[in-house]
């Protein structure tokens, strides 16, 4: 019970901080919105190429990728907040209270999940205006939001671990930015795997972003959905989450002890 209450208190705290710094939200959303509005226009003829799913516009194709790119890059900023608390002494201040230790991480993670969900909803609204429709209905929409948030959470773990290890917001930020684009471009986020040179295809085939993107895309396009693909994507993300959360918990325990 204490865990739940404490998580809620810290969730509310992070949320207040987030909304009182709208500039942060703005900058996180800036990039996906540019992608959504400009990129999809720039490459709108891509669907004329052979190998592109027939009858699908580039906007419909790329929306899934843009959603996950946003989740990925937002999640990779998560660690900066724990660095801030570490360096300001606020973490210590929490640790001398009887607050449940895991709640400190959970409060953070729930905020991240919430943030990614809200950002995704904004992106989806904009995509809707531009003509994007989710073909699997409301359930599909909910499942998309779930996958995107879950994917974000898995990577929040990496960012938190980095923050706890390096104690430097710049490093966390830098590594996040450094990882985002190579992983994004070497995935099926923006083009079908068949468009890539062979070596890049093999990267894309093991790229977690590809898995998550395919799962979301299958939900948004007509006649692609299959439970087995969804479940295996979720299992893959869960695998990442277990590893990143494990590292985070280990490092957090070292800080807490």
């Amino acid at each position: 019970m204490t865990l739940l209450f404490d998580t809620r208190y810290l969730f509310v705290r992070s949320l207040k901080k987030l909304f009182r710094n709208p500039i942060l939200l703005f900058f996180s959303l800036f990039q996906p919105i540019i992608f959504l509005v400009l990129f999809t226009q720039l490459f709108h003829s891509l669907n004329l190429l052979p190998g592109f799913p027939p009858g699908v516009s580039y906007l419909e194709y790329a929306s899934a990728g843009i959603l996950l790119q946003n989740a990925f890059s937002s999640a990779l900023q998560s660690g900066t907040s724990i660095v801030e608390d570490l360096n300001s002494g606020f973490l210590q201040k929490m640790l001398v209270t009887q607050v449940s230790r895991p709640a400190i991480l959970l409060g953070r993670l729930t905020t991240d999940a919430f943030r990614v969900t809200v950002q995704s909803a904004i992106i989806l609204c904009l995509a809707y205006v531009l003509g994007f429709r989710i073909q699997t209905g409301v359930l599909g929409l909910l499942l998309i939001l779930f996958i995107v948030a879950f994917f974000g959470l898995a990577w929040s773990g990496i960012s938190l671990a980095l923050g706890l290890r390096t104690k430097s917001a710049e490093t966390v930020f830098g590594i996040g930015a450094f990882l985002t684009f190579p992983l994004l471009f070497m995935s099926t986020a923006l083009v079908p795997v068949g468009f890539m040179p062979t070596w890049m295809q093999s990267v894309s085939n093991v790229n977690p972003i590809s898995y998550a993107v395919n799962a979301v895309r299958d939900l948004s396009l007509p006649n692609y959905f299959s439970w087995s693909a969804e479940v295996s994507a979720l299992a893959f993300i869960a695998g990442i989450a277990v590893v990143t959360m494990g590292i985070t918990l280990y490092l957090f325990k070292k800080v807490v002890s």
């Binding site: 209450f5 705290r13 207040k16 201040k93």
Partner: peptide, 18 residues
């Protein structure tokens, strides 16, 4: 160590909650 983005009152209430 106070949270700069929370008000004075919110800082204290959070501390009490914890």
């Amino acid at each position: 160590s106070v949270d700069p983005e929370l008000t004075g009152r919110e800082n204290m209430i959070l501390q009490g909650n914890l």
